[in-house]
């Protein structure tokens, strides 16, 4: 029986840029930011989920192809093409969060829209990972 998820990975191209985006713009909390020589272990959590660590991992150190330049190139291309949907985030007030993130310079691929499953907007990070941002009908 699987009981919980402890870590998940978002692939990024630059950890400083990722830190600025996920911490300063999205408002995530830094869980661990530790440097070990060249290696930097950087994990963040959404405010409401302090035990789910999102690993902001630079492409090239990834588990699927450490050091393999072909894999690195392919993953960069997928990111840049916007082919990697990386998750779904919840907010109790989509309109306010949308306005705030837009004011902070976050790029939205679609503005808040009412769907049959609730209100949703789509945004992307500076590398091309895109996310659904949703407000469930019962969240307010």
């Amino acid at each position: 029986m699987i009981t919980r998820m402890s870590h998940t990975t978002i692939y990024v191209l630059d950890q400083d840029v990722a830190y600025d985006f996920y911490v300063n713009k999205l408002g995530f909390t830094v869980h661990t930011d530790a440097k070990m020589g060249e290696f930097r272990w950087l994990t963040v959590c959404p405010k409401g989920q302090p035990d789910l660590e999102i690993v902001l991992m630079p492409i090239g150190l990834d588990m699927g192809g450490s050091g393999d330049p072909e894999v690195k190139t392919m993953m960069k291309k997928l990111l840049e093409k916007g082919a990697l949907g990386s998750g779904v985030f919840d907010t109790p007030n989509l309109e306010a969060t949308y306005q705030e993130l837009k004011a902070k310079g976050v790029e939205f691929l679609s503005a808040p829209e009412q769907k049959f499953y609730g209100k949703e907007a789509i945004f992307k990070d500076p590398f091309g990972n895109f996310f659904s941002l949703g407000e469930k009908p019962e969240a307010k």
Binding site: N93, A96, Q99, E100, A103
Partner: peptide
């Protein structure tokens, strides 16, 4: 909503 968000920023 925008005015409140602006104040929070």
């Amino acid at each position: 909503v925008f005015r409140i968000v602006k104040s929070k920023l």
